[in-house]
Amino acid sequence: MTDLLTASSLDAFYGDFQALFGVNFRISEGESVALIGANGAGKSTFLKVLTGLLPVPGQSLTFDGTDLTQHPAHEIAKLGIAMSPEGRRLFPSLSVRENLLLGATVAREGPWNLQAVEDLFPILTEKANTPSTLLSGGQQQMVAIGRALMANPKILLLDEVSLGLAPVIIRDIYSALPRIRENGTSVILVEQDIGQAVAVSDRLYCLQEGRISLEGPSATLDRADISAAYFGRKKEHA
């Protein structure tokens, strides 16, 4: 499989503070890759870099044959990278349907439109004209994912989907993932819940203090290795 997106020795800074150190990352078409790590490990920073919200001039970041660092955020959306951001960040003065319609701003061709998104999350049809602020956390998360899908992205970024949600709701939302991937959409998901991350991804990266501490196929990685990479401890003997 060819790589859709690659980052080589990527560094990222907030002012003088360095948040990412030499990150090597790749994802191929249709693949699902999980990004795990403790708070402050650099997961959200990495997604910000991919979406152009944190510019990294002069770095090596290629997507679908183009140099991503040359493009501002709104152009990256048009190229086909869409994100469901941490904290959902819906537009509070707008209804559910208006939030979804904004996702289609970039007007990319593809299978996703209002109808398809509302089929995926049927509750959104019922709540179409409800102000987004009046939804439950799970419903808001569905709107955030739906809004990203409306862009018909090649890569869908899911930042902390399960944050603050009940397990049954999380299961509901993740059950939509296979249908999203059906069309060849790649998925990068940031997840606190390691079990969930392993279950829904093909490969997995673990970040620790801005560096990749572990990388491998989700199915065969050892739990103890993951937890060592996650917390930065030496592997404990069982």
């Binding site: 919200l53 501002p72 951001p85 208006e98 701003t105 809004r147 862009a151």
Partner: peptide, 24 residues
């Protein structure tokens, strides 16, 4: 119109608006 929608989005959350492709 769609422009009005983009304006509202920009007022609500500039960064989120950029992320969906609005040239704020």
């Amino acid at each position: 119109s769609r422009v009005g929608l983009s304006l509202s989005a920009m007022r609500d959350d500039d960064e989120a608006a950029i992320s969906v492709g609005v040239e704020t």
